[in-house]
Design a protein around this nucleic acid. Structure first.
Length: 883
RNA sequence: GGCGAUAUAGCUCAGCGGGAGAGCCCCUGCCUUACACGCAGGUUGUCGUAGGUUCAAAUCCUACUGUCGUCACCA
């Protein structure tokens, strides 16, 4: 046959896009039919707020590796892609756009605003999809979903109504977290606590009977207009007599009582707390206990409302705070103001300070759902990798609170509840009603609020497969196999999916949860826009190629560790891909004039057996690593095999026969090389998808595509442990001589004479003899003898110790005898130390009695080895002295 | 404050009961007709500190110290 030419340099741009398009065209990402157990991943849907960052690249690279691997094992494999509408986040993006045009969403009106948001969604969606394609994601685009598409919207409505029917959704007036900037309520976990520098004010409240005053401490004096009481601890001796008395609330004409409640800390501040149920969670609870009517002092935009004295109305709370303090001071009520550090809630989307705000909202009763989710975990239905995240999961579920699901936004699933304006009837409906069910009036209006984004996301693993319909896909691919996600959304998403899935399908939505680390820069900082330390995945692909990116990520993705990268990090993958390319180019060149023959194990040389053995062992490593989510180990295994074993030793060894072997031997060897190469492509494909596909197509011994090929099996027939050991000995000889040459400065131009003296004539000796010509090349010798009868005179030769043999190199002239002796003596010292350790163990009765037999045997063989080495070294010193 | 993670070569990290490993860096030779994104050779570590368990500990346990992450916060 003719040589097959490969471009001189590895240039992924030449083929990545072409190959991706071909995969899509051939439907390679669609699950195959079959009775094998299916493997399913649903992609964590990226938000349509922007474009993908390195975190997405990490996440999707790992999912891609899993999908490609399981696809190659023959299981019907589905990786389902999609995007999330990301309510608040996307709405914010659009509102920021509008702000640049000097507009607010109210200026457009709900309908126009939502329309515009859809446009933004489309734009970002298209970018996200093109990015996922660029990085090589093998997801099934024909099944792509969006959280607001028709099917998913139906699932959302079904869920809402069903939960309502089951008594798990309720509406009520509660104190919720409210973001004045986003203008909506938030769930508890959407609030991030950050340390803020504020002030602690001590304010005097006069007793109504004029008998003096008490002092309360607060960080928020402006909320005093909502005060309904002052509380003290019932056990606080100082204030016992005051309980029940009335206070005059400064700046108002109201009077409030002093009450006793055990939540008040005696030690803290003055031991007296003003109670503002409408603006503080603790006060809210306290207020409920004492039947105190909350007084709301804020407008929805966070400014003070008409309940407050006129001079403060319309002021944002933070402005009012200092103003109120000022007035209090003027009037002599403020007695102290000191700087104070405390944790304050912020909106996780816009970072605005969150206000506890009393309003009517919809909630999901979580306790019953959480209990099911805890049970499923305890029953072993879900496994976290790494395991420690299970604590995070369980402790959150154990302390769960009801979930506020209504949002005062326009972008999202509108709450499927209608109110009759005539009779006040409330209807919770699967289908839009046309009129009031009770009075028949057509004057009905739908609830203005939309649902929390996560209310659609938590259905993702089954809504995307057609639920609530029991579709073919749902039956085949649910429950899914693995979820790959980052740890920052275990609460938001992972645990809620488990709850929803158990509630509605009766099954956990996935078996395994692989929690990735976060992508950080080289200094360990989170990648962020404000720091400007982010890396664009597309830049990485553009510079190094998609394979280089995925392989590097895989190599660095150790379970539970964050991944630290900069642009240069991806050289690792790039270099490896380049190596694969060049090795292939060389091997394909050598096809010139050759004929491929069937691989015949009976004709394997010992070195052939070794490389198959190594391939086999690494196949096992890769399989175990991927199945156990140890991505770095899988990458390490293919790297070691292909580079260190195949290229550095096997291909180098093959050159001998390639240049001087018989025609028949050359055909046989080339065939073996092609076989190993093809097997390597299959083994590496999940991690290096494009280059392996490109090469696989060029190999003369392959048919079809590597993406649809079978992943190599671990095979008993490829186990050759004896040959592997002998090869290791040969490598020892080679390394020994090369080392000596380098140390003595014997250049490549100078050939040496060498004798490998075997301790005995056995298999190892036969192996060395079989490969004597190879040894000559490896050590650059023109005269090398394998001597198993000690018949060759080695007087004056430089000795190198080995296990089962000694190597003598005739380089008398180059040697600095004293230096070499010193080196060997140093070596003996080290070995002696090891030997001492071993002997100590072996003479220890307890060790002999307690250790496993194999451990004892190992120590014994180590002892023998050390003794042999020291003996040989001593002999070699004598040899050197005789020079 | 609770919980959790982590501390191994100059850097980033594997290893997690029986002779210290990888990648990058560094040093020395080499453009050996696949690859200088390369080849060959080499250097580098009280495996955080102190105890404990064990015949044996980088590996298990405890405490401490540093770093990081989370949850919860008392006005």
């Amino acid at each position: 046959m003719k040589a097959i030419e490969l471009e001189k340099t590895y240039n992924p741009k030449d083929f990545e896009d072409r190959i991706y398009a071909q995969w899509v065209e051939d439907g390679n990402f669609k699950p195959v039919d079959g009775n094998e157990k299916s493997f399913t991943i649903v992609m964590p849907p990226p938000n349509v707020t922007g474009i993908l960052h390195m975190g997405h690249a990490l996440n999707n690279s790992l999912q891609d590796i899993l999908a490609r691997y399981y696809r190659m094992t023959g299981r019907p494999t589905l990786w389902l892609p999609g995007c999330d509408h990301a309510g608040i986040a996307t709405q914010n993006v659009v509102e920021r756009q509008l702000a640049k045009e000097g507009l607010r969403r109210q200026d457009l009106g709900r309908e126009k605003f939502v329309e515009r948001t859809w446009q933004v969604k489309e734009k970002h969606h298209d970018i996200i999809v093109s990015q996922l394609k660029k990085i090589g994601s093998s997801c099934d685009w024909s099944r792509e979903r969006f959280t607001m598409d028709e099917g998913l919207s139906r699932a959302v409505r079904e869920t809402f109504v069903t939960l309502y029917e089951r008594g798990l959704i309720y509406k009520g007036l509660y104190l919720v977290n409210y973001c004045p900037h986003c203008g909506t309520a938030l769930a508890d976990d959407e609030v991030e606590h950050q340390e803020d520098l504020g002030h602690l004010f001590d304010i005097n409240y006069p007793l109504a009977d004029g008998s003096g005053h008490i002092t309360v401490a607060t960080t928020r004096p402006e909320t005093m207009f909502g005060d309904v009481a002052v509380a003290v601890n019932p056990d606080d001796e100082r204030y016992k007599d005051l309980v029940g008395k009335m206070l005059k609330l400064p700046l108002t004409d109201r009077e409030i009582p002093i009450i006793a409640d055990s939540f008040v800390g005696i030690e803290f501040g003055t031991g007296m707390v003003k109670i503002t149920p409408a603006h503080d969670p603790n006060d809210w609870e306290c207020g409920k206990r004492h039947n105190l009517e909350p007084i709301n002092i804020l407008n929805p935009d966070g400014t003070l409302n008409d309940i407050c004295p006129e001079q403060f109305r319309g002021m944002p709370a933070e402005v009012a705070r200092m103003k109120v303090a000022e007035v209090l001071k003027e009037q002599g009520y403020l007695v102290k103001c000191e700087d104070y550090k405390h944790e304050v809630g912020h909106c996780y989307r816009c970072n605005t300070t969150v206000e506890p705000y009393m309003s009517e909202q919809w909630f999901v009763k979580m306790r019953p759902l959480a209990d099911k989710a805890l049970k499923a975990w305890r029953d072993g239905e879900i496994n976290f990798y790494p395991k420690r995240w299970e604590n995070t999961y369980s402790s959150w579920l154990e302390n769960i609170r009801d979930w506020c699901i209504s949002r005062q936004l326009w972008w999202g699933h509108r709450i499927p509840v209608w109110y009759c304006e005539d009779c006040g009837e409330m209807m919770v409906e699967r289908e839009d009603p046309c009129c009031c069910k009770k009075c028949g009036s057509k004057k009905i209006r739908q609830d203005n609020d939309v649902l929390d984004t996560w209310f659609s996301s938590w259905l993702w693993p089954f809504s995307t497969l057609g639920w609530p319909e029991v579709t073919v896909d749902f039956k085949k691919f649910f429950p899914t196999s693995t979820l790959v996600t980052a740890y920052d959304i275990i609460f938001f998403w992972v645990s809620r999916m488990i709850m929803a899935s158990l509630e509605f399908t009766g099954k956990a939505p996935f078996h395994d949860i692989y929690i990735t680390g976060l992508v950080r820069d080289k200094k360990g900082r989170k990648m962020s826009k404000s720091l400007g330390n982010g890396i664009d995945p597309l830049d990485v692909v553009s510079i190094y190629g998609a394979d280089a990116m995925k392989f590097t990520i895989c190599f660095l993705a150790t379970q539970g560790q964050d991944v630290l990268v900069d642009m240069d990090s991806f050289k690792l993958g790039s270099k490896f891909a380049n190596k694969i390319w060049n090795a292939t180019r060389y091997l394909l060149m050598n096809l010139e004039g050759r004929n491929l023959v069937a691989i015949d194990p009976a004709k394997f040389t010992a070195v052939d057996k070794w490389i198959y053995h190594s391939l086999n062992e690494n196949v096992l490593k890769v399989r175990n690593a991927i199945e156990g989510y140890k991505f770095n180990e899988a990458a390490q295994a293919v790297y070691d095999f292909f580079w260190n074993d195949f290229c550095d030793w096997y291909v180098e060894a093959s050159k001998l026969s390639m240049y001087s072997g018989s025609e028949e031997e050359k055909d046989r060897l080339v065939s073996v090389l092609m076989d190993i190469l093809a097997e390597s492509m299959k083994m590496m494909h999940p991690m290096l998808s494009f280059i392996t596909e490109e090469i696989y197509a060029k190999l003369p011994n392959t048919e079809g595509k590597v993406i649809t090929a079978s992943f190599p099996e671990y095979s008993e027939a490829r186990k050759f442990p004896e040959e592997a050991k002998m090869m290791a000995c040969m490598q020892d000889v080679v390394r020994g001589v090369r080392n000596m040459r380098a140390e003595l400065g014997i250049g490549a131009e100078k050939k040496v004479r060498a004798v490998v003296r075997m301790d005995e004539a056995g298999d190892l000796s036969a192996f060395m003899k079989e490969h004597v010509d190879l040894l000559k090349i490896f050590v650059n010798s023109d005269n090398l003898t394998i001597d198993d009868s000690a018949s060759v005179d080695v007087t004056g030769a430089f000795p190198i110790a080995g296990a089962g043999f000694e190597t003598y190199v005739f380089v008398r002239d180059a040697i600095d005898v004293e230096k070499e002796i010193a080196k060997i003596e140093e070596d003996i010292k080290k070995t002696q130390a090891l030997l001492d350790g071993v002997e100590k163990k072996l003479s220890n009765e307890k060790f002999i009695n307690n250790a496993k037999q194999e451990a004892i045997d190992k120590e014994r063989s180590k002892k023998a080895e050390f003794v042999e080495k020291i003996e040989k070294s001593n002999k070699h010193i004598a040899v050197l002295r005789s020079f």
